[in-house]
Design a protein around this nucleic acid. Sequence first.
DNA 1: CGTCAATGGTCTGGCCTCAGACCAATTGGC
DNA 2: GCCAATTGGTCTGAGGCCAGACCATTGACG
Lengths: 239, 239
Amino acid sequence: MSPHALADAVLGPVRGHHAFEGCVEQLAGAIRLGVFDEAVPLPPERVLAEQLGVSRATLREAIAALRTAGLVETTRGRGGGTVVLPGASDASAARAAWESRREDAADLLAFRRVVEPGACALAASRDLSDAERDLVEAGLRDVEDAVDDRAHRQADARLHLALAAASGSPRTVEAVQEVQRGVHEMLGAIPVLAVNITHSTRQHRTIVRAVLAGDAARARRTMELHCDDTAALLRGLLQ
Amino acid sequence: MSPHALADAVLGPVRGHHAFEGCVEQLAGAIRLGVFDEAVPLPPERVLAEQLGVSRATLREAIAALRTAGLVETTRGRGGGTVVLPGASDASAARAAWESRREDAADLLAFRRVVEPGACALAASRDLSDAERDLVEAGLRDVEDAVDDRAHRQADARLHLALAAASGSPRTVEAVQEVQRGVHEMLGAIPVLAVNITHSTRQHRTIVRAVLAGDAARARRTMELHCDDTAALLRGLLQ
DNA sequence: CGTCAATGGTCTGGCCTCAGACCAATTGGC
DNA sequence: GCCAATTGGTCTGAGGCCAGACCATTGACG
């Protein structure tokens, strides 16, 4: 056996891609997932920079990039700030990119299968705060109230993020966020997608009920099915 | 509900800490986990830099830091390179640091509970290559052959990494690696630890058997128990 | 209307990281 | 013993990122 077999399997790129890129990725991703309300300005630059752990200069560059991409618009002065432009979450910039990254797509779906069921099980095993319950319940409500395919997709992603947030584990939130950003892009890359909404709505309900009731096994199992359904669909359509 | 509740739950520091620090972290972590054989030089700087995705200058600085910390020694010229010093994996530099990071420790254990069972289930659901089987089997053998507590701890970590590698998902490998680095440090921070080795050896066997046999449910369940046992122990001892 | 607070806009100096080029040391093969 | 290959050692110029300071704009309030 090669002296470096395990090292080769284990060592990979240091997660040190540029702060600017990571910043754009997080903000654009959150915008696309509908995390930011279109009517409300984003947090002030100084706050957002601190939240994202970058300098304000870097954050400003990231926001400038978002502006260039037509996702946001910025107003100076009191009462100003950066707002998401209507339709920004519709950005098709990412479309078709997935078809050239099949390996990464497969890995993302695999990783999803690892972290989302675990996140739900963890959330179900905790004593949730009222705020956490509210987030999850609002998430489910939004999915069921979604009026069209796009709104549904965003609400779906927000629900998953809310479930991850209910795990109370920042690392888990980050992992699920990474997954949801990727899945959202992949779903957006598929032109025609009359998803089986009733089916996944039932799964969502079951998952949320299980999480709120503390039924970790059911939460996990149903999320596994949910992930597998989506993965099968995406794998089928990407070939 | 606050306009930014979900954004606040979801947005966090961009994973853009300095390349140098990430580099040191990965190398020192791998050294501590026994990933590098003490008799064999690390890959050449140019290769390692490419593997880690950093410039050679940054890698050299990281290696210099490892040298300063007494973990490695470097020889110039053909046949030269950087070798792990005996006892380097014993470095106690990280000790006691965990007692001041209880929140992070809790999050790490939570995240572990999310990703390791999922990784095993995923590995069990795949058609493993011979190389992957070999890595896992060698990992188990090393754990069972470990002659003392330190060797056991390292072999344990290596087995977990091998299982993660068997998932075939780079993202999953990275998540498990992060977990194992943290757990390894936490375990090293506990002065007296007569672990219940027989118990966890049995669990390891069960996990490996299940993974090699394609029994995803058993692999997952047993790894869950395994993680819970370790977590309970660590939580108990850190209070 | 004037003042103040909140927000974005701009600039500066210093440190980090990069890619690439070139040099020095050591060993292995002939 | 010699030479070439391999490996580490050093340097340079350019770009990224940071923290902090200061300026400009806008709206709310008295």
